[in-house]
Nucleic acid binder design. Structure first.
Lengths: 340, 340
DNA sequence: GCAAATTCTGCAAACGCTTGCAGCGCAGAC
DNA sequence: GTCTGCGCTGCAAGCGTTTGCAGAATTTGC
């Protein structure tokens, strides 16, 4: 069957031009040090002149594996993800891997598509950093036998490593710190992910408040993730009857939105109201006032993930394992004594 | 030559299990409506049970083309890029394309690698959003015949569309606005990209200042891109002998860093000092005080790029073209009359 | 100067998929 | 009963690489 000859250059063209076989060209391009150097340079010259770029699809097909690290995140916009992503990318490049990212935008259809894509690409390793994931999908990844790491979702098994942050502790530390400042009415602002870690944070929040001071009041507000969402939640809070002296936000990004709205309302932070975030993104340090938040070591998490799927840790233990991270409270200027 | 049989499922396995040929399986999976429905469901069942995922490398190899949209950006961290990226991604998904992003981190070696990757992947279209690019590399892309769009770099040619923002106008608008507020000593804070658009902004800045008020003083400071860089540049500025009444920043991100440092120094914005940004990222509206900046319509840019490489615009004119965007000044609260 | 050892190079199969073409089975027409 | 037509399915080539193996070219040893 004769198909139209692709315009794109291929090994044959280079081989012909250099007067050698495709195998030789292949060996030159893969730096196999068995080719005579005169041949070698002839081939390189030909490749150069023809503007040849190896077809990576053909290559990974022939090799039977790729050197691609797949990353799935639910919201690239959030610097939290971005930081993990950057570490991962740096590690990957350092070890000669390519990186492919897929963004799910919190939509489960997109998550399915992303997983399909990664499995279809036969990635060498997969990092999944999303806020929720159906058990079924997790199993799909597990069955694929591709070394994977999940952040805050699922449970460890054969090829899957799990990284969890102990939100409970983070929230507890925050609440007890606020408590010690005299706060007795606190609000929690979360976003619309109802499953997984987020809801854990909410639940823990309520428990912690009640434990620290049984008489304290607590209430939860919800809005979409992001700056706008934070603002919107603050709006709702202001319009509600609840008058907290402190607001805990599910992440720093939302906290910035919250502070913006409070400022607009003429409220001073922390004089009138304390605000805390979660994650300790760079911005937390740069906003006004600098945000008290819970530090999550994103670089460390990135390294751990890489090590467990493509790095050295992978070699030591074949079966997946769980790694729990213990976060710390970072006190800055957005929190102060409760207004009496 | 017998190679180790891959663990991964393939068409053959599914075909065997369903008792049909691989061609039939392929047709089912590609939704070619020629397969008898009883066969069809048998195949689907088999694929499901075997947890089969088509090998995308083999697929694009066989098809001779991919449906991948490649995107290269120099700094994912900057919301400016992120916004374009998101629009592009949405458009791509809407038309059934996959997306692959590569991040260059402002490093030219990474840029080369990214271009190699994209060409190797035989992407269907390529969007390049970086702050500088060697002519040689641009030619490589041009020679590849892959429909591409460059943002703010290079010149249009056969398969390449060019999108430019008229920085000159943006800067002029900003400077003349500040001038009208009485500012006569202005500083410009840029980052380390010395070529291309950035340096255009710097040059234009100097020209504009001198045109608006010939007696005015202008000075330029430089630091790495990002929040920290802004802060660092502000630090230098403060320590220098130059005492501007207004600071223009090359982008909003750096402006936020600048404002942070000024605040720390006890300076009030805009009472003591006016600050402007560039891009009008979301954050500009949420920082304190909200930032006066130049709006660049990133969604529009994203759509234009997509249309020109994979969308309808592509069909109309085969040769590349140049599109210039005219930015507008957005006045918020970070600017005010010059301190006398 | 010749055989043996050592480089180097080419052949051809395999990777997993798509797809033009041919062929099978079966319905209806004659 | 034969023929035509049609709906489905299978065959096999081809996409651009990699790579084990064997053979060609070159060097070495004596």
């Amino acid at each position: 069957m004769r198909r139209r000859r692709s315009l794109a250059m291929n090994l044959d063209a280079v081989a012909q031009k250099a007067g050698v076989s495709t195998s030789t060209v292949s060996r030159v391009l893969n730096n196999l040090e068995v080719v005579k150097s005169s041949t070698r340079s002839r081939v390189l010259k030909a490749a150069e002149e023809l503007n040849y770029h190896p077809n990576l699809h053909a290559r990974s097909l022939a090799r039977g594996k790729s050197r691609i690290l797949g990353i799935i995140v639910s919201n690239m916009e959030n610097p939290f993800f971005l930081d993990i992503y950057r570490t991962l990318e740096a590690d990957a490049h350092a070890r000669g891997h390519e990186v492919v990212v897929a963004n799910t935008d919190y939509q489960s259809a997109q998550l399915v598509a992303s997983v399909q894509l990664m499995l279809g690409l036969r990635v060498a390793g997969l990092a999944v950093i999303v806020s929720e994931m159906e058990e079924h999908l997790i199993q799909t990844v597990a069955n694929s036998r591709i070394p994977a790491a999940f952040y805050d979702v699922g449970t460890p098994q054969r090829n899957i490593t799990n990284i969890r942050v102990d939100y409970r502790k983070g929230i507890k530390k925050t609440v007890s710190y606020l408590s010690s400042l005299g706060h007795r009415r606190m609000a929690f602002i979360g976003h619309h992910s109802t499953l997984g870690p987020i809801s854990e944070r909410r639940k823990t929040f309520l428990e912690s408040v009640h434990r620290c001071s049984p008489a304290a009041e607590a209430k939860i507000f919800t809005a979409p993730d992001g700056l706008d969402g934070g603002r919107q939640a603050a709006r709702e809070l202001i319009e509600s009857a609840f008058r907290p002296t402190a607001i805990l936000c599910v992440n720093d990004f939302m906290a910035v939105g919250v502070m913006r709205e409070l400022r607009e309302e003429g409220l001073q932070i922390p004089r009138d109201l304390s605000v805390t975030g979660f994650d300790n993104i760079k911005l937390a340090e740069f906003c006004s006032p600098p945000l008290t938040t819970v530090h999550i070591p994103r670089e460390q998490i990135g390294h751990i993930i890489f090590d467990n799927i493509l790095g050295e840790a992978r070699d030591h233990h074949e079966s997946g394992r769980e790694i729990v991270i213990d976060p710390d409270l970072v006190v800055r200027d957005s929190t102060g004594p409760a207004k009496t």
